[in-house]
């Protein structure tokens, strides 16, 4: 039975584009990998404890975990800023070398976007800032110009290109910071809590930017505390705890694993929690494909539950009702 669910894209700005159904798919080759990486800071804090994680090529990966679980430390290892005390970082099957050539290769391939854009932007204008990375790769001026313009277009910051950083909003600075690494044409873009501190609309815009970069063939890795975003958007979720890998897998599986949720002190996404209740109460068969966003949940309910006659006659709109709940 086909059920049409009205699109809530226009009604509520906080929607993430529904991911294509990529449930059990072929394992992708590993683009970037940490192999048994251990790292401790000078004060003795062990940030990573023989951690092994692979980032599959072409996927959207979300890294989850409590504050201080080592997400940022892992990202700094991927960017070649920190060097493992033991273990190694592997790019495209080759262990990363920490000499000049190795670093140039790593930094061209891996674009690291920091949480605080003010620590990344330094130049007097947006366009100049974006040109910094590509110029360091030794490209010709013509190629650099093309790369800068392409990055400006992809991140939709054309109207900001000649402004100084201090005249940009926080969300705009984030986009500029992304453009700055995008211009270096990396295979993977790693962003540390990119949506933290952004309003819902900016978050949605940022997520759709990541989607367009992903559609262009790039691997995207982000860390976040937003479980709804992780469930709706990720192809793969990585959960860390105290510098170790707790679990990695498809978001619906990871978020339905009670041990992982308890171990990493994660909240189950409301969509999945509701789904669980409805299954438990017998409204939805337990073998149904778990929903990843409100749309999919509504579709499931529409398929398996019949509407109340009174609701139809009164023109009841479940989405409106849902909205007033959120407000």
């Amino acid at each position: 039975m086909a059920v049409t669910v009205p699109s809530i894209d226009k009604a509520a700005p906080v929607t993430y584009p529904s991911p294509a159904r990529r449930e059990r798919e072929e394992p992708a080759e590993t683009l970037l990998e940490a192999r048994g990486v251990t790292f401790s800071y000078p004060d003795g804090t062990v940030a990573l404890n023989s951690l092994s994680i692979g980032i599959p090529r072409g996927r959207r990966v979300v890294v989850l975990g409590a504050n201080g679980c080592g997400k940022s430390t892992l990202f700094l290892h991927f960017g070649g800023v920190l060097r493992p005390k033991s273990g190694e970082i592997v790019l495209d099957g080759q262990p990363v070398r920490y000499d000049r050539a190795g670093m140039t290769r790593l930094r061209q391939q891996v674009g690291l976007v920091f949480q605080d854009p003010d620590s990344q932007l330094f130049a007097s204008s947006v366009r100049q800032d974006i040109s910094f990375g590509p110029l360091n790769l030794g490209w010709s001026e013509a190629k650099v110009r093309d790369a800068v313009e392409a990055a400006i277009e992809a991140t939709q910051i054309g109207d900001l290109a000649d402004r100084p950083a201090h005249l940009l909003s926080y969300g705009q600075k984030k986009r500029v910071a992304i453009a700055g690494v995008l211009a270096m044409d990396p295979s993977v873009i790693i962003a540390d809590e990119p949506t933290a501190g952004l309003d819902p609309e900016s978050t949605a815009r940022l997520v759709s930017l990541f989607n367009s970069l992903h559609d262009a063939g790039r691997t995207i890795v982000i860390s976040t505390h937003d479980v709804e975003l992780a469930l709706a958007w990720a192809d793969e979720v990585v959960v860390m705890r105290k510098g170790e890998l707790l679990r990695t897998g498809h978001p619906t599986e990871v978020f339905q694993d009670p041990e992982v949720l308890a171990g990493a002190r994660l909240q189950q996404p409301i969509v999945l929690e509701t789904f669980g209740h409805l299954c438990h109460m017998g409204y939805i068969p337990t073998d149904a494909v778990p929903p990843r966003n409100a749309n999919e949940l509504a579709e499931l309910i529409g398929c398996h539950c019949s509407p109340q006659p009174s609701a139809i006659s009164s023109g009841f709109d479940p989405l409106r009702a849902g909205q007033s709940h959120h407000a």
């Binding site: 800023v81 674009g111 690291l112 620590s119 040109s131 910094f132 001026e141 800068v148």
Partner: peptide, 16 residues
């Protein structure tokens, strides 16, 4: 740190 990640090697080169 952030500049290093974009290949900084002692000179802040930007397009003019």
């Amino acid at each position: 740190t952030a500049l290093s990640c974009r290949g900084y090697s002692g000179e802040l080169r930007v397009l003019v």
